[in-house]
Design a protein around this nucleic acid. Structure first.
Lengths: 109, 109
DNA sequence: ACATTAATTCAATAAATGTTGTATTATTGA
DNA sequence: TCAATAATACAACATTTATTGAATTAATGT
């Protein structure tokens, strides 16, 4: 992951509602969730949610698939994993755990 | 780490210059760096840097110690570690790696 | 075709964030 | 004490981000 990707992903998560949206998608797993369900679950206006989902998608943290008139948003675990790897790597730069950095990211995601 | 702390830390790092400042402090290690040195190193105006350092400090990611007329800023590795733990834990919620979550954070920081 | 549902888009506004220049506080050394 | 240095604080402004209500697009079922 590049610096600007990391900044973008960090910015996308640096908002209470978006972090909750992302967490809800993580919990939902590979099936994902529709904006309607998310809006009900998190009590957010639909257009506001749409804005935040776009932010998350633009940052590469979620993917979108259309099924009929529903959209299914899913957490992009690989991208989140890349962010964790970036942070771990740079958190430890100059430290003693560089060798572990790659194995430390969430490999199951 | 609580949600609002995580949001705050994520927001502090979600800015190119602040991320670079933090990385420079990580590289500098336990000695830390003064604003003057950071400003020269990163080519940022001093008052702008002061603003960004305040943001990082407010988010708990850096600590400040005064020595004479110099201030020494240091990366707070424990706090960064806490953020990584929070993200790892929530990135994996509902997944298979919850048992590893605690061991995955940067233990050397 | 028509009404309904899902979701987004747009414009307007409000709120938060970032930058710059200037002024201020505090420490040091002559 | 006075000049120089380190750093922050403040005010003004510009920019970006967030929210809301109204309108729009697209898919579905009758």
């Amino acid at each position: 992951m590049k610096e600007d990707q990391a900044v973008s992903a960090l910015g996308a998560l640096a908002h209470t509602q978006r972090l909750r949206v992302f967490r809800a998608l993580v919990v939902a797993g590979p099936e994902g969730l529709t904006p309607s369900v998310l809006a009900d679950q998190l009590d957010v206006a639909r257009n506001t949610l749409s804005f935040h989902l776009k932010e998350l998608a633009h940052a590469g943290l979620v993917t979108i698939e259309q099924q009929g008139r529903n959209l299914f948003y899913r957490a992009d675990f690989a991208h989140m994993n890349g962010l964790l790897g970036y942070l771990t790597e740079h958190c430890c730069q100059g430290g003693v755990c560089e060798a572990n950095a790659t194995s430390r990211a969430c490999t199951s995601c």
